[in-house]
């Protein structure tokens, strides 16, 4: 579904991600883990087109999308939830959701909204409220709902459980698994909550200092004690 070939990414002249390759299979969860500052977010930003791609390719369903502008990638089927600043606080909940479906016919957007409300009913009660007035958990629900509004083929989530209470984080990871199992989506996940994330994942990559140290089955990474101890704090 999504293939990354020898990707080199950075910002301006700063080279952060070096020669990274992996493939996210259809209807699977691929998780990128690694120490802080390892280039995980930069890699997602490179795939989306908001960081500079120095070389390499990004293929979506076989089509080279490397140098397309971000809004075109979104319209082609990549939904991206950034780690921070992932909602518009000055817009109402309904405006946020409608913007996430911008360009689609209004009837389609309204239908999608009803679908996301079945996942997060609390948002339906907040439609007219400014997003800035939502709680942290509700904001995260809104951000994920916005990512789903275009019904994307690939969903990229950058540390979605960050800042959430443990019970909410656990529930969110269950919902991510449901995206694959029930919605038949392909998920590319960056997550600090390593053990829980790898447990729901099919494949994984360990990214250290911008370089890929491991690419393979998530279970294999989870059971690799040496890598777990050295980089992930997993025993």
């Amino acid at each position: 579904m999504l293939k990354v070939e020898s990707l080199n990414v950075g910002y301006g002249k700063f080279h952060i991600v070096f020669d990274v390759s992996f493939e996210v299979k259809e209807r699977s969860i691929f998780t990128i883990v690694g120490p802080n500052g390892g280039g995980k977010t930069t890699l997602l930003n490179g795939i989306m087109g908001i960081a500079t791609v120095f070389s390499g390719r990004v293929l979506l369903k076989g089509q080279d999308i490397t140098h397309l502008p971000p809004h075109q990638k979104a319209r082609l089927g990549i939904g991206y939830m950034a780690q921070t600043d992932n909602i518009f606080p000055g817009l109402t909940v309904i405006e946020n959701l409608l913007m996430a479906a911008y360009g689609l016919p209004e009837s389609v957007a309204r239908d999608r909204m009803e679908t996301v409300f079945t996942y997060y009913p609390v948002l339906k009660r907040r439609t007219g409220q400014k997003a800035r007035s939502l709680s942290g958990g509700e904001r995260q629900m809104l951000a994920i709902s916005m990512t789903l509004m275009r019904d994307p083929d690939v969903i990229m989530l950058d540390e979605p459980t960050s800042g959430l209470a443990p019970i909410l984080a656990k529930d969110l990871l269950k919902k991510i698994a449901a995206m694959r199992d029930e919605l038949k989506k392909t998920v590319l996940l960056v997550e600090q909550n390593v053990k829980a994330a790898l447990e729901i994942s099919d494949d994984a990559m360990l990214l250290v200092s911008g370089r890929s140290e491991f690419v393979g089955k998530a279970q294999a990474l989870l059971s690799d004690e040496a890598l777990g101890r050295k980089y992930l704090g997993v025993k």
């Binding site: 908001i50 979104a74 817009l91 209004e106």
Partner: peptide, 23 residues
């Protein structure tokens, strides 16, 4: 929708881009 997308782009141009708005 265009006016709201203008407000969205003013508030956070990067987010506007990644959700599919041609800023």
């Amino acid at each position: 929708p265009f006016g709201i997308s203008m407000r969205a782009s003013i508030e956070n141009p990067q987010l506007a881009k990644i959700i599919g708005i041609d800023i």
